[in-house]
């Protein structure tokens, strides 16, 4: 029921933003469409499904967005520096890291965040293990790699999703 309601709300909100209007007919059609889709896919994940409904989790979510944008920009500058340097200083490899997160959505957001940040790309997900392609491997063992790739995001996601 909770996931149904959240999916409905997410879809409906997206519809309203897309239309950019609050006219009654727009709202009625949007509500009907969102209702049908939410009824057809009761188990579909929405970014809000597992989010804890506490004020602290919501504040952390806002802080997370800013942290993420900062990391995204750092990531791009790092990749730009590599691409522009004449001798292409890469040291690629695939390493394994572990996450403490339990929820599906938390893990998915973690994998997504890792993919958009400095030189790392999630290749495979298997339960609590993530396999990460890293452009410049500087710590191949699990603990070090986990500390430098996962820990930063996990701090936030743990509060948000657990």
């Amino acid at each position: 029921m909770r996931s149904f309601a959240l999916l409905f709300l997410t879809l409906f909100l997206f519809w309203v933003l897309l239309n950019g209007s609050l006219a009654p007919d727009v709202l009625v059609v949007g509500a009907a469409a969102a209702l049908i889709i939410a009824a057809l896919f009761p188990k579909a994940l929405s970014a809000l499904t597992d989010l804890r409904p506490t004020p602290r989790a919501l504040l952390t979510a806002v802080a997370y967005v800013f942290y993420f944008l900062k990391e995204l920009i750092k990531s791009n500058l790092a990749v730009a520096a590599i691409v522009l340097s004449p001798n292409l200083p890469v040291n690629p490899g695939i390493v394994k890291v572990r996450t403490k997160l339990k929820s599906q959505m938390g893990r998915m957001l973690l994998a997504n965040s890792i993919t958009l940040t400095p030189g790392t790309l999630t290749v495979e997900l298997a339960g609590e293990w993530l396999y990460i392609h890293w452009v410049t491997v500087d710590a191949p063992d699990i603990d070090h790699a986990t500390a430098s790739i996962v820990a930063g995001f996990e701090r936030y996601l743990e509060v948000m999703y657990g």
């Binding site: 990531s75 791009n76 990749v79 691409v83 690629p92 695939i94 030189g119 290749v123």
Partner: peptide
């Protein structure tokens, strides 16, 4: 893999 990294990240930003 490195191409995916360079290609998709920079284009997202």
């Amino acid at each position: 893999f490195n191409r995916i990294q360079a290609g998709t990240k920079a284009t997202t930003l």
